[in-house]
């Protein structure tokens, strides 16, 4: 098969093989996934319990009631989980750069970025989906979410965009290691920042922070703006009725920028000495 359709088919075909290999790896080391299966849900469920406490003490957070906060929190964890499955390697790109691990991707006839993420696809990230789904479904119930095909489709669009924004930012951070050649691990503070800004309403932060997270680093678009839009909540900083679609658009834009930046970085790749 030739042309674009052939190329897409080829990538899907290889993706299935990569997923199969990732599952085999899980079977090979089962203790690994069991550990994550225990620790990941606990982490997020405890996080959500904190919100419950805050709401019961203060009534609401910036006009967001308990159910709306659960809806937001659930989508934040779900998009986090998806980004963990597909893009977590971006956090550790420095390690791959220093150890010359890009050699093998460069000598194979597929996109280097695709190979980097999909040969290292992180099936364990699925363990993050569980708490996300629990809290999200609870939130849906509380806000009276209408399960129409249109609404489900919008959730799908939102999660795709949110995952692309997160993934693109991980790639941009990771790509800097082509120049610094240092073993920077972006995991901790990236997750910290994303957690603090996507799980709670952005409107509770000072306006300067909101500006930065809306226009410069588009983290506000991961959950806050699209969810505000879906739940019909107003915020005094930015109003738009197409927020969910904007999330997808911004996701694609960030990903394209990240891919271009990565290409530039790869030109600086120095492999590793023998």
């Amino acid at each position: 098969m030739k042309g674009i359709a052939g190329t897409i088919f080829h990538y899907i075909d290889v993706t299935f093989v990569n997923i199969r290999m990732a599952l085999l790896r899980v079977v090979e080391y089962p203790s690994n996934i069991i550990g994550w299966l225990l620790s990941n849900p606990v982490q997020f469920l405890v996080g959500f319990a904190t919100i419950q406490f805050a709401v019961s003490e203060f009534g609401d957070i910036n006009g967001w009631n308990y159910g709306q906060l659960a809806f937001l929190y659930g989508l934040a964890v779900l998009s986090h989980a998806l980004s963990m499955i597909f893009f977590v390697q971006g956090w550790f790109m420095g390690n791959y750069v220093i150890h010359g691990e890009f050699d093998r991707y460069l000598t194979r006839p597929m996109s280097v970025l695709y190979q980097f993420f999909f040969t290292n696809i992180n099936i364990i990230g699925v363990t993050d989906l569980i708490p996300g789904l629990c809290v999200f479904l609870y939130g849906c119930h509380k806000v009276g979410f209408h399960w129409s095909i249109g609404n489900v489709f919008m959730i799908f669009v939102l999660l795709t965009g949110a995952t692309l924004i997160r993934g693109g930012i991980y790639i941009i951070l990771g790509t800097t290691t082509f120049w610094t050649r240092s073993n920077n691990d972006f995991a901790q503070y990236t997750q910290e920042i994303f957690d603090k800004t996507t799980m709670y309403p952005l409107s509770m932060y000072p306006e300067g922070v909101q500006f930065v997270l809306t226009y410069l680093i588009p983290i506000g678009w991961v959950t806050f703006y699209p969810v505000s839009n879906m739940l019909g909540l107003s915020n005094d900083y930015l109003q738009t009725s197409a927020a969910v679609w904007l999330t997808l658009l911004i996701g694609i834009l960030v990903m394209v920028l990240a891919a271009l930046f990565f290409r530039l970085g790869l030109r600086n790749y120095e492999s590793a000495g023998n």
Partner: peptide
Amino acid sequence: DLRLGESFELLRHIYR
């Protein structure tokens, strides 16, 4: 981590 045959299988798909 995997059997040699699995690596070959991946390459078989990568190179079509």
